[in-house]
Write a protein that binds this DNA or RNA. Structure first.
Lengths: 148, 148
DNA sequence: ATTTGTGCAAATCGTTTGCATCTGA
DNA sequence: TCAGATGCAAACGATTTGCACAAAT
C-alpha cells in the first residue's frame, strides 16, 4: 500500500496555484478559483480519463464546492482551449482525456473503464483519401476488451 | 392489394416475410409482426447506420405502428443475436449498423452522420497484447471528418 | 395455457440552459 | 466597473422500466 514514492509531489502535478493560473491565462481562460481548483485536480496526476460526474465528486472531496453545471462548462472550455480531449467511446457518458497527444484507447466493456493503450507503435494503414470537401480531424482507435 | 412488384429490384432486400421469420427463428428470436416488419426495414436495403428514432419514423411511414420502446427492445435483441452491431461513436445517440462484418467508419462532425470507410484495406498494426485476463472483442477505427 | 412480446406513460440518466447573483481584472 | 463566471433548478433528449394487455407457440 505504500509505494517508494517519496512524495506525491514527484508526480507531474503539484503545480502551484499561480503556475496553473498562468497556464489557464495562456489558454485564454480567466483563472477563477473553480477553474484553478479543477485544473489542479485534472492535471496534477498525470494522464487520466474522467467523467464530469467523477470530477464533481473529486471536487467535493477536495472541498472545492462546484456545481455540476460549472464542471460541464469548465470541461468544455478546457476542451475548446486544447487542454483536454473529449472521448466519445462508450454509449452513455463522455470521458475527458487529459492527454491531448496522439494515442489510442482500451475500453473495458465490463465496466466501461477507459485506458490508454500503452507504449504502442500502433499505426493505422490503408486509409483512403477523405471524401471531397472534408478533412480528417483525427483518427480514433478503440480496442474493446471483455473479461477472458 | 395488387402486388405491383414482387421483388422491388435487384436490391439485397425484398425478403419474404417467411424468409425473415426464418432468419429470426434461426437467431433465436420469436418472429413477431413487429420484429418481422423491423427486420425488413433494416435489412432490405443493404448496409445502413440507423438510430432508434430514425427506425421509428420509418416504421410509422411504412404503416407499421411500433412504439419507441419496442424499437429499442428490438434493436438490442437484434444486437444480442448478432444481427446488428452497436456503434458508440458520437456523443449523444447510438447508431446500429446492419453490417456486422469487420469494417470501419467515418463520422462527420458537422452533422454526426456515420458512413462506412469504403473499399478499404485499412489495417491496424502494432497493437500490444491485451491486458492479462482480457480478450479483444473488436477494434474500432473512427475517422472524424470536418468540413474543409 | 404458458410464455414471450408489446404499448404506454412515467422514470432515469447524462447533459444543457436560463437567469439571478457573484467575482476577478 | 462590468464582462465574464458561477450556482441552482428547471428543461431536455435519449434511453429504460413497470405493468397491464396481446400474441405466439
Amino acid at each position: 500500500m505504500h509505494e517508494p514514492t517519496r512524495q506525491r509531489t514527484g508526480i507531474p502535478g503539484a503545480m502551484s496555484d499561480s503556475a496553473v493560473a498562468e497556464r489557464l491565462r495562456r489558454a485564454g481562460l480567466r483563472p477563477t478559483r473553480q477553474r484553478i481548483a479543477l485544473a489542479k485536480l485534472l492535471f496534477d496526476r498525470g494522464d487520466r480519463h474522467i467523467t464530469a460526474e467523477e470530477l464533481h465528486e473529486e471536487a467535493i472531496i477536495a472541498r472545492v464546492p462546484v456545481s455540476l453545471a460549472t464542471i460541464y462548462n469548465t470541461l468544455h472550455q478546457f476542451t475548446d482551449a486544447g487542454l483536454l480531449r473529449e472521448l466519445s467511446v462508450s454509449g452513455a457518458k463522455t470521458y475527458f482525456d487529459t492527454n491531448t497527444s496522439n494515442h489510442y484507447h482500451y475500453v473495458f466493456e465490463a465496466d466501461g473503464r477507459v485506458e490508454d493503450i500503452p507504449a504502442s507503435e500502433v499505426r493505422v494503414l490503408g486509409l483512403p483519401e477523405p471524401p471531397a470537401g472534408t478533412r480528417v480531424l483525427r483518427v480514433d482507435v478503440v480496442v474493446r476488451l471483455a473479461d477472458d
